[in-house]
Amino acid sequence: MDYVSPIDPRVAEPLARAPRPAALEGRRVVLLDITKNRGAEFLDRVEQHLQRRGAETFRIAKETFSRAASGEVIERVAIHGDLAVEGLAD
């Protein structure tokens, strides 16, 4: 039976996850702070661990946690990072 789908085929399936990197040495890791309460504290600790493992870190913050990241923020994450860690903590 044919039906009219409520789903836009362009976004029907989530994007595939990127492969997990084998090592962090020399990789650029963006730490994205969404400005949620205490998220920065969480990222501070993550940053220490990453730096100990030889990663180069770079901090970027969203203007507000309650709205989607702007194109500019996403572009900066893409430019500055091989990997990204997002701090969703509260």
Partner: peptide, 19 residues
């Protein structure tokens, strides 16, 4: 329509109304 960004073409909205 966020978060996925699917387009709310009227036929999809109508499909949802039927559903």
């Amino acid at each position: 329509v966020p978060p996925s960004g699917g387009s709310a073409a009227l036929e999809r909205v109508a499909a949802c109304a039927v559903l």
